[in-house]
Nucleic acid binder design. Sequence first.
DNA 1: TAGATACCGT
Length: 644
Amino acid sequence: MAGAQPIASIHVRGSSFLLPTPSPCLPLPSLDALLAAAIDAAAGPFHLRAVHAALIRLGLDSSSFLVNKLLRRLSHYRVPLHPYPLLIFSLVPRPNPFLWTALIRSAALFSSCRPDHHPLRLYSLMRRRWPPSPPLSFTFSALLKSAAADYSLANGLQIHSQSISTGGFDADLFVQNTLISMYVECSDLASARKVFDGMSLRDAISWTSLIVAYTKIGDLSSAEGLFDRSFVKDVVAWTAMITGYVQNAMPKEALASFERMRQAGVVIDEVALVGTISAIAQLGATKRALWIRDIVDKTGFGQNVVVGSAMVDMYAKCGLIDEARRVFDEMMDRNVYTYSAMVVGLAAHGRAYEAIDLFNEMAGRTNVEPNHVTFIGVLTACSHSGMVEEGRFYFRTMKNEYGIVPSPDHYACMADLLGRAGLIEEALELVRSMPMKPHGGVWGALLGACRIHGKTDIARIAANHLFELEPDGIGNYVLLSNIYASAGMWDEVSKVRKLMRARGLKKNPSASWTEGKDGAVHEFFAGDNCHPRTREIKDALEELLRMLKLEGYKPILSSVVYDVNDDEKENLLKGHSEKLALAYGWLTTTFGDTIRITKNLRICEDCHLVMRLASRAANREIVVRDNMRFHHFRDGECSCGEFW
DNA sequence: TAGATACCGT
């Protein structure tokens, strides 16, 4: 006989589906084993139905073993539990504990759609049905995971106590690890810690779960302490530290961890890369952005859609919008995250038409559905270039065509769009018509528009809401005071100042960063003398400002709201962190170079003017990323067209 | 013959 022939096949709509060929040297596999192999090899839900039909014909549809495999595969294809998988289950007269557990696991995937199929309900059925099934440790893993997904501490506690009363499963390592995660998800760190402390044996997962718990509440020193104590530092544990730092706005520490991980010889995976890429995005560090690309290329994760989307976001946030576009164009696989990152990035750089073109391409020529974030990008693009009608159109489209309920962030974009265009009354009306309470961003957009258009009456309304929502948000007081100052309403200015004093508000902790040629990040705080080259930087700034004054620069003293004399105001302006970063950049670059600055707050008017003039006088391109958008200064002009 | 837990992007 030449070669073994397939011994069975299933025909589905003209395509035959071959069962595996047995080796001639081994005994024939059992029918069970053959069917199990057929389930494993099925190409989709349709094949699985065909296999189930075969099971019925062969009288094997009551086999817990085979039905268990079927359920697992169906949930792999995310076939909802009701009604088909439940039907398959119901044909098994005496489901064994494995099968019950598989059912509970499937139910956990869809617990939100069918409350009557909730995992806990199925568990109680499992315990009450005759003959009752004893639970397995796996049963508790599944149940605890579903409690964590529901953020239900009450359910979690109930399952925890069941795990003890039904046979001491709380001593099982897997159950303990899942308990830790459940308590962490349900924000009960004390209980998570209690489980951890009570464990006689801990593995990498136990340690990592608790490390994540501490990073989530922002207690990085406890997380670091645990990480140092842990003897099992795998790539996941390292990544938990990296993302913990990122989530707590500590990108430098995240990068340092990544380096230490590499030095420790740990093999990097795509998740570690994504965390590191986010850290670079947060830092806005251009050199690092180019550095990580080499690493991504070497590891071969460049075509991973999550890595790619993170890269698009990173390049956009580092000011390298063309590089972001290049990565985007080279990606083979793009999803809604990829498109949203690109649209939001283009919008932040003021490239509104490109952003809207891309959105239209996505909506028209791909199967990728836009989501709420994509529309944030589209609406931002419209507002940053005064496209009022387009903005109104997309706001309607979002609701009517895509069924996306506008969030306060979308309303903030609309308030910004209408307000900037001078339609401040309409913006106020929109805000007042919101079905939910407006957040600070919404009133802030309105207040910003009032600054541009000198609307003191509406500014007062917006500011009063802001003072209530963000009593410590000093920027709001500054803005209102500026608006009054521009209108010559000095009494009001002094009232705002009094309010600030009464609330004990201190100077902004403003900070800027810029990168040196070596890629080192130099950090500057307002009025700070900490940089080792402070003397040189201050001298350079004086010289630069002297140069600009010859070209007509007059400091915009109204950017200072402190009640001090004009000389002191000018001095305060000189101490602004972005000017220190500019001076450092000027000192360390030459003609034609680009100086890139990242700032944690919105750039002030005086600094904006200085950047604009310096780009021509010093013959440098200057790219400033503030907390609102990017400004590209070139030859005395800014990409924002003074529209910010 | 079966089964699980930790870290990712807009």
